[in-house]
C-alpha cells in the first residue's frame, strides 16, 4: 500500500510518502522563529517533490493520511481540505489521525509520553500515551495546570519518568519539568511531528465511517461569546 501522509497542525508542513516496500520518505518545511507557516504554499509542492523522488504518480497513492490536530485552525483546514481534494479526485482512501498521537509515537519510548502542541493564547494542546494506550485525553490547558492534570493521572504515570515532546513542551518547559516530566533539548527532532510516525499511524488506521475533519478542541470565539451573552 502506498501512503501519502500530511500534517499542518503546527507551524511545520510535514509530508511523508511510504512506498510499497514500507520505506518512508520525508519532506518538510519548518519555518524559523518569526516566520509565517507555509502550509498553503509548501504542502502540495513538497508532496509532488516526494512523489517524483520516489518515481510515483498521484494515481498510485492508495491512501491519503492527514493529521487532524489539534493545532492552528487555519493550518489544519489547509491540510484537511487538501487531503479531501486529493482523495476525492484520485479515489484514494482518506484517513484522519491525531497530530498529538503522531507526535507521541515519534518519541518511541516505553515511558509515558506527553504530546504538547502550542495552542497560542498561553495554552497547550496536551495528551498523554503509553505506547498505544491513551493515558490523558486531548485537551487545551494553561501550562500552570499541567501539574494538576498529571497528578490526577498519577497512578497511570508511575514507573518510568514521563517524557514531554512538542513545541508546547519546549515553550513551557518550566511547567513540565516542574511537574517532574523530562523534556528533550530544544533542538531535538523528537519535538517535531515526523513523516514516519504519520505513515505508521495512518497506514494501520482502520477506515472509519466518520467524516475526516479537524479536531479543533476549541469552539469559535463568537459561539462562546454568544452563549455567554445569552446566559
Amino acid at each position: 500500500m502506498i501512503v501519502l501522509a500530511i500534517d499542518t497542525a503546527t507551524p511545520a508542513t510535514v509530508v511523508g510518502l511510504q512506498g510499497a516496500d514500507g520505506d518512508v520518505l520525508e519532506a518538510r518545511d519548518d519555518p524559523g522563529a518569526g516566520e509565517r507557516p507555509g502550509h498553503s504554499t509548501r504542502l502540495l509542492p513538497l508532496a509532488a517533490e516526494l512523489l517524483s523522488r520516489a518515481g510515483l504518480s498521484w494515481r498510485q497513492v492508495d491512501r491519503v493520511v492527514v493529521g487532524v490536530g489539534p493545532g492552528t485552525f487555519t493550518g489544519l483546514r489547509v491540510g484537511v481540505a487538501t487531503a479531501h481534494g486529493l482523495a476525492q479526485s484520485s479515489g484514494a482512501e482518506l484517513v484522519g489521525i491525531s497530530s498529538l498521537r503522531s507526535l507521541a509515537l515519534g518519541a518511541d519510548s516505553d515511558a509515558p509520553v506527553l504530546a504538547a502542541i502550542d495552542a497560542r493564547r498561553g495554552e497547550v494542546f496536551l495528551s498523554g500515551y503509553q505506547r498505544e494506550m491513551e493515558l490523558l485525553s486531548p485537551r487545551a490547558l494553561a501550562p500552570a495546570a499541567v501539574s494538576d492534570a498529571l497528578s490526577a493521572k498519577a497512578a497511570a504515570l508511575t514507573g518510568e519518568r514521563p517524557l514531554a515532546v512538542g513545541d508546547g513542551a519546549v515553550l513551557y518547559r518550566w511547567a513540565f519539568e516542574g511537574a517532574g516530566v523530562q523534556v528533550p533539548d530544544d533542538g531535538s527532532p523528537l519535538h517535531r511531528i515526523s513523516a514516519s510516525a504519520l505513515c505508521e499511524l495512518g497506514g494501520r488506521a482502520v477506515l472509519g465511517g466518520d467524516p475526516v475533519l479537524p479536531d479543533y478542541l476549541r469552539r469559535p470565539d463568537a459561539a462562546i461569546a454568544l452563549e455567554g451573552a445569552v446566559g
Binding site: 498553503s40 502540495l44 498521484w58 487555519t74 483546514r77 489547509v78 481540505a81 476525492q88 484520485s90
Partner: peptide, 20 residues
C-alpha cells in the same frame, strides 16, 4: 475571508493535482 478562501482553494488544488 482568508480562512474561508483557503478551504476552497486547497481542496480545488488537491483535486487538480491528483489528476495533474
Amino acid at each position: 475571508l482568508i480562512g474561508a478562501l483557503l478551504v476552497g482553494l486547497s481542496a480545488a488544488k488537491g483535486i487538480a493535482a491528483a489528476r495533474e
